[in-house]
């Protein structure tokens, strides 16, 4: 990628408008042996998510008598970043696995499957900033692909601030060089924010601006998610609703 020339314009590092998402592609049902799966490309992120279950929980003592357990694993391939990283899970991976679970749980009817487990495995093949949001987008589609009943799809993207400007869906460079990064996940039907984190420094007004911007971004992603499912299941607009 060539270095950008002008810093003064409102164009961003990669030529996007401040409130423009990166190119987004979602495909569902891509893994033959998973109960549900999805592949997402969000910018240069390339992520595969497989869903297994509802199935019997091992070890059994972790199962809940009244509901299913949602288990998420966020994992980065050693070659997904430069320099290479160790394949062992880091503290960061563990925390992201946790927030992924909290982002998806509000959507899933876990009470329908007592004692069982639903495993969501996200493998990051290539990382380009905003991997957690991309994982949530793909995982939500994969859960539906697995036939698991959900209240709504969970769409996710980040907003942030770089060079004094609020921007949507930060890429790797903006993520590292920017002033702040606010990843958010949203269920458009219930209007609930299910993931919210932040790093950096923002005034309260800018923070509220970031939330509004990210929610708008999520609504656009939501449409792409629906398209991905409609494409596989061949539903027209009326049936999908």
């Amino acid at each position: 990628m060539s270095k950008k020339k002008s810093k003064k314009t409102t164009k961003r590092f990669d030529g996007r408008k401040p409130d423009e998402l990166r190119p987004l592609k979602i495909e569902s049902g891509v893994l033959p042996h998973a109960d549900g799966s999805a592949y997402i490309e969000m910018g240069r992120n390339k992520i595969l998510v497989g869903v297994f279950g509802p199935r019997e929980m091992h070890p059994k003592r972790f199962s809940k008598p009244n509901m299913a357990t949602l288990r998420c694993r966020y994992h980065m391939a050693p070659f997904s970043v430069d320099p290479r990283r160790s394949p062992a899970p880091s503290r960061r991976d563990n925390e992201i696995s946790m927030v992924m679970r909290y982002a998806l749980e509000p959507a899933v009817f876990l009470e329908r499957y007592p004692r069982s487990v639903i495993d969501v495995y996200a493998e990051i093949l290539e990382a380009d900033g905003g991997t957690r949001t991309a994982c949530i987008n793909a995982a939500s589609v994969a859960l539906v692909d697995a036939g698991i009943p959900v209240r709504d799809l969970v769409a996710s993207c980040a907003a942030g601030k770089i060079d004094g400007q609020l921007v949507l869906d930060l890429g790797d460079y903006e993520d590292k060089e920017g002033d702040a990064d606010v990843p958010l996940a949203y269920m458009p039907k219930t209007e609930h924010v299910t993931l919210l984190q932040m790093d950096g420094i923002l005034s309260q007004d800018d923070f509220n601006g970031c939330i509004d911007m990210a929610i708008e971004g999520c609504k656009q992603i939501y449409e792409v998610q629906r398209e991905a499912l409609k494409k596989k299941y061949g539903l027209d607009e009326g049936e999908a609703n």
Partner: peptide, 27 residues
């Protein structure tokens, strides 16, 4: 939050979401 009232870190956990209004109130 820092001493000037800037937001520095946010973390949401738990199996329920927050509405936009609840987030505003929380801040």
């Amino acid at each position: 939050l820092d001493e000037k009232g800037n937001v520095c870190t946010i973390q949401k956990v738990g199996s329920v979401g927050f509405t936009r209004d609840e987030l505003k109130t929380a801040v």
